[in-house]
Amino acid sequence: MTHTLHRSGNPSSLEQDYVVFAIAAQGFNSEGSIPKFEQFANIALKYNPVNFGDMKQGNVFMMEKEEILKNFKENSIVHAVFTDKDTVLACLKEIKEADIGLSIVVSGLIHDTAVACKSAGTAPHTVEHSLGIHGATEKLPSQAVRDISTMCGHGMVAFSLVEHLVDEVKKGRTSLEKASQELAKQCVCGVFNPARAAEIIEKLL
């Protein structure tokens, strides 16, 4: 549950972090859904997402985009990551007009998403909020490390990897771009936002 929820950060950083994804309801409309995933993907890719992937296959930092497009399954979950609300609105409008029939979820600032829905001719049906992190929070690393790591909801981007790559960039052993792409590669679903990660790392240098 919630693989794109619980992305932490300050409001100005979160303004650059949207995931739009398509999913079929297993046992309801999953049969024959593969061409619908292709339709969704082709629309989403027109808007140049900074990441793209399928939970059943992997992301564009692990494999070729064309390979992903050819191998959707009926239980795929197909994601595209964007860095601004205007692009999300334009993409959503086209998805709505295409009347694909898959469930579409937008993960990002909730108020801005509601505005985008209205402009696209739809409305929020169900909304999910994070209520934060609780329990033994003394085990957590710095806020900046969390802001990067939580962009993979399955925990594939280890705190230690973020710390290691920040250190490598600081020492000039790798570039910001390569570090953020290496982080994105670990998040198999393709919901990690490498552009936002690069911005956060840059502030740590």
Partner: peptide
């Protein structure tokens, strides 16, 4: 749910997930 969470003393996040209601049937 957002209102109820606030009533219980939690601060719901500004970002989250919105199902935009396009699945069919």
């Amino acid at each position: 749910s957002e209102e109820l969470a606030k009533k219980a003393g939690f601060t719901p996040s500004l970002n989250g997930k919105t199902n935009v209601g396009l699945g069919r049937p």
